[in-house]
Design a protein around this nucleic acid. Structure first.
Length: 899
RNA sequence: GGAACCGUAGCUCAGCUGGGAUGAGCGUUCGCCUCACACGCGAGAGGUCACGAGUUCGAGCCUCGUCGGUUCCACCA
């Protein structure tokens, strides 16, 4: 039956072959099917500039697990894939590429540049997709989308025009964050603050005397970290209740270099305690000053060009770079005696998260989305539990943002992206926002228009992703059937950029939430807990891990031992452990295959009949029932955990079950029957159990380790064509054997005790050992009398004898007290009686303690009244167990002491 | 300045609505190449669950405080 399996599992080649087969068979593809329930996930679209990194690997593994799980459960599972144009990331990348050839984007011009971008996308845009495939991602690639494809463009325009009509998109002159290197505005979320060592320049402005002359004696002192902005000062401010300066409010100071007289205003924004209590106000170059300026009607003087050089408003500093001007200004102020002192100062400087350039706040005409109304349903949905965030603590972070929301600056001075659908009449300048360029100006009748040169923030199109990918704004069947989606899986780092924006967009455009649940994961860090980054060079390439250890090992590593939303450290040793587990599964399967009856034999026919009948064979041995029952429990628990998105816990249970219970115990227990061909009924019962539990376990494991499970599954059986479209195991009553679970638990305990006793006394494995068992549960043990071989294998006790009475137990045997029986090992000559007595005495003490604790609980009225009945019963059960053990230990103690 | 998270075995982390620390992987000690697997098997050692107080019959889990670490938000000129 099937192919020969190699001694160790080698994923090389296997994964590719399997993935290709899945794709060819269209297993990933989902179509609208009203007879089945849909389960939808939309992928967080990776950037086309991207290379698969550990973050992607984690994110997509989680999604693939969920989608495979649900697909096996019978849902019509759709994983909608696609990529993001990533306007600024891509543009920066391409500009750098061009630079190497000595070309600037201006040289090319807009049209040529965009052509270049599209070519670039054609060449590299598919790379990340291929890498996702290597990971095993079961996305419906037939539905692959791109944020700048025709449908998404349509959606973007539709939303822009609609929201503009509603008044929720507007153009305004605001202070924005400007990146002088990328030459574009950026949103608040794109600004990253970094602690930088800088200086605090204490400067003074002379007061204007009543007669209009510049005072030589009275000055107003203040401090600044950016002296060059003084060229744009239009006031100085003090606190309204600051008595020191009360008399000066309303008067003016003289501004050097530009020779301006600027007023002293009173504003609550000023902190009296900080510095001298005086602040220079530069409305055009500082967000706070901008607000102050608005309150006092101050002029806004822009002193900078887009490349952060000083413009004509800066007088003689015109043309200088901002830092050059700063140095020059400080020098000249010093010469004029207006520089008081320079102080070292560490402060937070805003930098652009893409290029690291210090951001310059500037006043610019930009497009904004009005947030106050838009955000309301998004807040409500989370508050009322309509959208569930996992882990729940993310809600606080979510509200922290929504409560302090500011209008969203959506225009970018870039070329690669969705161009803003606003058109300016060449005649009169009238602005028309429309899906297409208008023919006639509604104001002046002009016939020539120029489109706004700006493009939209890249997140504008991603915000529409859950419905634009399903066909919106058309009313498609897909949209009706698959929307809202079920889960969004993403990192907490883009909760503001993306998650919130998708939520409010969903409500606004669709009238419904975009997804039911958001499952957050953390960052994958290196083994020292540092962020993986290009500059540190500490990144681990998931593709290299896949090449060396296989995608399954990588996936398992990423998913185990980590709670939702928590960062994780990546250790190579854990990858090795995962690979070892894969090999374990491989070898257990190999063992089972090796023991299968020959094709066409009578035994094979018998086994096939058993497997075909959907019941439980009559000839099952207790250990068969035990493993079946344990498997059944794992099915229930793992499924339950997965439903609750506790993926790591679920796979841990499956892992433990397969390795510990199935491989280390059951397979060892079953060997005697496999090697004994005399009783074919018992042998086929064993084979049936091995097959049933193995197949079921592979299914439970499949979402996590899709390749190896498929490879084994298709090898060990022939009726189902692929594990990925097989059905998920369900809990079934006829697989439940609580009595056998308990009995085998006892056997395991006995075996462990024998092994421990032997190891402790270093009894050579070749040495024969007898085991005498005196049990209160003779029946359980008698059932295992025939399994002597099992004891041989595990305890290396070649003459294990199970007896049901104390008769014949040699004097001086080592007694091992178990929870259900006492075992005697005739090892008197090897044992340390004194140590054993000490151990037993300790045990008596411990059991006494347990009994007191138990009695305390059971005599507690509150506990009896409040605790669930099951708990009370369990406690009573424990108490009885303690009593029995105590009795046994005391007996054994007495016996030893008598020696 | 505001907020969140973490502090459990040598290391990295799990521990569900409070009820025996069965913890897991790696590492480590001892013994095994037992005919599925040395990417393995068996047996161990190793924990005042950061510290202090409180609530409770009972706290790793709840409350408050302290110490140590990480992160997010806002950004004071």
């Amino acid at each position: 039956m099937g192919r020969e399996l190699a001694k160790t599992y080698d994923p090389q080649g296997i994964e590719e072959r399997i993935y290709k087969n899945w794709e060819e068979k269209k297993y990933f593809h989902a179509e609208v099917d009203r007879s089945r329930k849909p389960f939808t996930i939309v992928i967080p679209p990776p950037n086309i500039t991207g290379q698969l990194h550990m973050g992607h690997a984690l994110d997509n593994t989680m999604q693939d697990i969920l989608i495979r799980f649900k697909r096996m459960q019978g849902y019509n599972a759709l994983w909608q894939p696609g990529t993001d144009h990533a306007s600024i990331a891509t543009e920066v990348r391409i500009i750098n590429n061009l630079k190497e050839q000595g070309i600037s984007k201006q040289d090319l011009g807009r049209e040529k540049f965009l052509e270049y971008c599209w070519d670039w996308r054609k060449e590299y845009g598919g790379r990340i997709v291929n890498q996702l495939k290597k990971l095993g991602s079961s996305c419906d690639w037939d539905r692959e989308r791109f944020t700048m494809d025709e449908g998404c463009n349509k959606a973007v325009t539709e939303v822009f025009v609609k929201m503009h009509k509603k008044g929720w998109i507007y153009k305004g002159s605001r202070i924005i964050n400007w990146c002088p290197v990328c030459n574009t505005s950026i949103s608040d979320a794109e600004v990253q603050y970094e602690e930088q060592a800088g200086h605090f320049w204490h400067i003074k402005y002379p007061l204007i005397e009543e007669d209009g002359s510049i005072s030589k004696t009275t000055f107003l002192e203040f401090a600044t970290t950016r002296p060059e902005t003084m060229l744009g000062d239009t006031a100085v401010a003090v606190h309204p209740e600051d008595e020191r300066y009360a008399a000066l409010v309303g008067r003016k100071v003289w501004l050097p270099f530009v020779d301006r007289q600027i007023p002293i205003v009173a504003d609550e924004y000023v902190d009296r305690e900080f510095g001298t209590g005086v602040v220079k106000i530069t409305p055009a170059h500082d967000p706070n000053d901008f607000e102050v300026g608005k309150r006092h009607g101050l002029p806004e003087i822009n002193i900078m060009n887009d490349d952060a050089t000083i413009n004509e408003n800066g007088g003689k500093f015109c043309g200088m770079d901002r830092y050059e001007a700063r140095a020059q200004i400080v020098r000249e102020l010093d010469e004029m005696g207006l520089l008081v002192r320079i102080e070292d100062y560490t402060h937070n400087v805003g930098t652009h998260d893409r290029c690291g350039t210090t951001v310059e706040p500037l006043i610019k005409q930009q497009w904004f989305v009005k947030m106050d109304e838009l955000i309301k349903p998004a807040v409500k949905a989370v508050k009322e539990g309509d959208i569930q965030l996992i882990p729940p603590r993310m809600e606080k972070i979510y509200y922290n943002w929504t409560d302090n929301i500011r209008d969203w600056c959506i225009s970018r001075q870039l070329w690669w992206g969705h161009r803003i659908p606003a058109y300016y009449c060449d005649e009169c300048g009238e602005v028309v926002v429309a899906k297409e360029m208008p023919e006639v100006c509604p104001k002046c009748g002009g016939r020539h228009f120029t489109q706004d040169p700006d493009t939209l923030d890249t997140w504008f199109s991603s915000a529409l992703w859950p419905f634009s990918t399903l066909g919106w704004p058309e009313k498609t069947e897909d949209l009706d059937y698959f929307y809202p989606t079920n889960v969004l899986v993403t990192g907490y780092d883009i909760i503001f950029f993306w998650v919130i924006r998708m939520i409010f967009s969903g409500f606004e455009q669709m009238g419904e939430k975009p997804f039911e649940t958001v499952l957050f994961h953390g960052l994958v860090r290196d083994d020292q807990g540092r962020k993986m980054s290009k500059s540190l060079g500490n990144g681990i390439d998931p593709l290299e891990i896949i090449a060396q250890y296989g995608a399954d090992a990588l996936r398992l590593t990423l998913i185990t031992g980590n709670a939702p939303g928590n960062d994780m450290r990546f250790y190579m040793s854990r990858v090795v452990a995962s690979r070892n587990f894969a090999n374990k599964v491989w070898n257990a399967s190999r063992f089972i295959m090796m023991n299968m009856p020959d094709e066409g034999s009578e035994a094979m026919a018998r086994l096939e009949a058993l497997l075909a009948a959907d019941g439980v064979p009559a000839a099952l041995a207790p250990e068969d029932k035990w493993i079946l029952s344990r498997f059944n429990t794992v099915v229930r628990e793992a499924t339950d955990n997965m439903e609750k998105f506790e993926l790591g816990i679920a796979v841990q249970k499956v892992y433990d079950f397969i390795w510990d219970e199935f491989c280390d115990w059951y397979i060892e227990m079953v060997k005697p029957r496999l090697y004994n061909t005399d009783d074919e009924d018992k042998r086929s019962a064993a084979l049936w159990t091995l097959q049933t539990v193995l197949r079921g376990s592979l299914k439970l494991l499949h979402p996590y380790m899709p390749f190896i499970t498929e490879e084994i599954f298709t090898t060990i059986q022939s009726e189902e064509e692929s594990i990925m479209i097989s059905s998920w195991p369900v809990y079934r009553e006829d697989y439940s054997f609580p009595h056998e679970e308990e009995a085998i638990g006892h056997i395991k305990e006995a075996v462990r005790a024998v092994r421990a006793a032997r190891a402790e006394r270093q009894v050579a494995p070749s040495r024969k050992a007898r085991v005498y068992v005196v049990s209160e549960e003779e029946k359980i043990l008698s059932e295992f009398e025939e399994n002597r071989l099992f004891f041989d294998t595990l305890a290396s006790a070649s003459e294990t004898v199970l007896q049901s009475s104390k008769d014949g137990v040699p004097e001086g045997s080592l007694s091992l007290v178990l929870s259900f029986a006492t075992i005697y090992l005739p090892l008197a000559d090897l044992m340390d009686v004194a140590a054993e007595i000490a151990r037993l005495e300790k045990e008596v003490k411990r059991l006494g303690g347990e009994l007191r604790r138990s009695a305390g609980m059971l005599s507690n009225e509150k506990f009896l009244a409040k605790a669930p009945q099951a708990k009370v019963d369990a406690e009573r059960e424990k108490q009885r167990g303690y009593e029995a053990q105590l009795k046994g230990v005391e007996e054994a103690l007495a016996q030893l002491k008598a020696l």
